[in-house]
Amino acid sequence: MKYSGIGGQAVLEGVMMKNKEKYAVAVRKPDGEITVDTKEYYGLIKNKTLRNIPILRGVLSFVESLTLGISTLTYSASFFEEDEEDTKAKKKELSKEAAAKKEKAEMGITVAFSFVLAIGIFMILPYYLSLIFRKFITSHVALALIEGVIRMMIFLAYIASISLMKDIQRVFMYHGAEHKCINCIEHGMELNVENVRKSSRLHKRCGTSFLLFVMIISIIFFAFIDVKSRILKVVLRLLLIPVIAGVSYEFIRLAGKSDNPVVNFLSKPGLWLQKLTTREPDDSMIEVGIASVEAVFDWKKYLSEM
Rank of each mutant, 00 (worst) to 15 (best):
residue 129 L to G: 01
residue 228 K to I: 10
residue 235 V to P: 00
residue 264 N to I: 04
residue 196 V to H: 06
residue 7 G to Q: 07
residue 5 G to S: 05
residue 254 L to D: 02
residue 26 A to C: 08
residue 101 K to D: 02
residue 279 R to C: 03
residue 234 V to L: 11
residue 273 L to E: 08
residue 273 L to I: 15
residue 7 G to M: 10
residue 258 S to I: 02
residue 1 M to A: 11
residue 59 V to M: 06
residue 105 A to M: 15
residue 202 L to N: 00
residue 247 V to F: 08
residue 257 K to I: 07
residue 4 S to A: 15
residue 44 L to F: 14
residue 193 V to R: 08
residue 173 M to A: 14
residue 88 K to S: 10
residue 293 V to L: 12
residue 102 K to R: 13
residue 163 S to N: 11
residue 170 R to C: 07
residue 146 I to F: 04
residue 164 L to D: 02
residue 303 L to K: 03
residue 86 D to Y: 04
residue 130 S to C: 09
residue 114 S to T: 00
residue 171 V to K: 00
residue 95 S to T: 14
residue 154 I to D: 02
residue 228 K to G: 15
residue 111 V to L: 05
residue 250 E to P: 04
residue 185 I to C: 13
residue 243 V to Q: 03
residue 228 K to R: 14
residue 285 M to N: 05
residue 217 I to H: 05
residue 19 N to C: 14
residue 96 K to M: 06
residue 175 H to C: 12
residue 107 M to C: 03
residue 33 E to A: 11
residue 149 V to D: 03
residue 112 A to V: 03
residue 249 Y to N: 02
residue 198 K to C: 12
residue 131 L to Q: 15
residue 119 I to N: 01
residue 179 H to W: 06
residue 213 F to P: 00
residue 271 L to K: 12
residue 80 F to Q: 07
residue 104 K to R: 14
residue 229 S to G: 10
residue 242 P to H: 09
residue 187 H to W: 06
residue 289 G to H: 00
residue 101 K to T: 11
residue 131 L to W: 14
residue 147 E to N: 10
residue 42 Y to F: 15
residue 283 D to S: 10
residue 195 N to V: 06
residue 219 I to G: 03
residue 29 K to S: 09
residue 217 I to G: 03
residue 103 E to G: 01
residue 89 A to P: 00
residue 61 S to P: 07
residue 239 L to A: 09
residue 291 A to M: 05
residue 302 Y to P: 03
residue 276 L to A: 08
residue 61 S to R: 01
residue 180 K to A: 11
residue 5 G to K: 07
residue 134 R to G: 09
residue 255 A to T: 06
residue 150 I to T: 11
residue 305 E to I: 14
residue 237 R to K: 15
residue 212 L to I: 15
residue 87 T to Q: 09
residue 74 T to E: 09
residue 45 I to Y: 02
residue 240 L to P: 04
residue 92 K to V: 05
residue 169 Q to W: 02
residue 34 I to S: 03
residue 163 S to C: 08
residue 178 E to I: 04
residue 39 K to T: 04
residue 210 F to D: 00
residue 24 A to I: 02
residue 143 L to Y: 07
